[in-house]
Design a protein around this nucleic acid. Structure first.
Length: 296
DNA sequence: AGTCGAGCCTGCTGGC
DNA sequence: TGCCAGCAGGCTCGAC
């Protein structure tokens, strides 16, 4: 489920069900996901009121009264389903990104019962996701966030920032942008899409973003706004999906229809004037989609 | 310190 | 139809 736009879409979908409400019961059905749940997880949540829902990179932040935050990561396959108050209301899957084929109840690992009557279920077949409870004052320094880089939609994400991080780096651009310490929130899809838009080869060295004096190159200047664009467009597409959810059950996210390279191996490059074909290569064990002709 | 590969899990798809 | 290999949106760890 989770790159930044999907997590942001999930956050917006959970907000009406959770913000301002209190956990009346928490049904934790196994001792661990990727990591063990914190001690007495369900008991510690019961009776707590949620002041706000936030997001940091790909993490959901459930701010609790009493200076603690429930930190949730969706891993690869984590999904939430919201049963709004009222028996006849259809379930909502905020941020559903591919065609909804339903979820196997065997993987419903956590069920939150809210004081407003909403029931929020966390389902995660691969269990790469996790939940943690962190005191507010430790949030920045906790193991999840201590090494996390800047938000790509925040003011700190600039060409100069990327250049500083990229000086002398011999790793390729793909791996550099996937590294959450450099910029936090990009995943395989949006790195592919952003590099395509920027006409940059994913196989270039990351150091191509920095000049010898450490200042950003034109490539870095080009890349930064395009990363923002692709993320903002994806969030907008997810938001539209949410409005659809309000009126119908099932349903689709649809930013995948806007992919220009991801998952399009052997299709024609859509860049005007380019006669190239989208190729798939493997970098750090992950698929990279790119046009070898117009991405240089 | 930076880089790379393996591993964590399950489910789905495509080829034989 | 059944089986098996390969693949999947993330992240951590260990080895070099």
């Amino acid at each position: 489920m989770p790159e930044l736009p999907e997590v942001e879409t999930v956050r917006r979908g959970l907000e009406p069900a959770m913000a301002g409400a209190t956990f009346t019961a928490v049904d934790q059905r196994r001792p661990d996901l990727r990591f063990a749940f914190p001690t007495s997880f369900a008991e510690r949540l019961r009776g707590r009121r949620i002041s706000a829902l936030g997001r940091r990179a790909k993490y959901l932040l459930v701010r609790l009264d009493g200076d603690e935050t429930l930190v949730m990561h969706l891993g690869m396959s984590g999904r939430f389903t919201v049963h709004p108050p009222g028996a006849e209301a259809p379930p909502i899957r905020p941020g559903e990104f591919v065609q909804d084929t339903g979820t196997n109840p065997a993987h419903d690992h956590v069920v939150f019962h809210m004081s407003n009557g909403a029931i929020v279920t966390y389902n995660d077949p691969r269990r790469f996701g996790y939940m943690d409870l962190i005191p507010e004052q430790d949030l920045e320094t906790c193991r999840h966030f201590a090494d996390l880089g800047v938000e790509p939609l925040g003011n700190a994400f600039t060409a100069a920032h990327l250049a500083r991080r990229a000086i002398g780096r011999t790793t390729d651009l793909k791996a550099f942008l996937l590294d959450q310490r450099n910029v936090a929130g990009l995943g395989n899809i949006y790195v592919c899409e952003a590099l395509y838009r920027a006409r940059l080869s994913p196989q270039r060295l990351a150091s191509c973003l920095a000049r010898a004096d450490g200042k950003p190159t034109v490539r870095a200047e080009r890349l930064v706004p395009l990363i923002r664009d692709v993320l903002n467009e994806a969030i907008a597409a997810g938001g539209s999906t949410l409005r659809d959810y309000a009126h119908a059950d099932g349903s689709l996210g649809y930013f995948q229809h806007a992919f220009k390279v991801y998952g399009r191996e052997n299709e024609a490059c859509v860049t005007p004037g380019c006669t190239g074909k989208i190729g798939r290569i493997v970098q750090s064990g992950r698929s990279t989609f790119h046009c070898g002709r117009c991405q240089r």
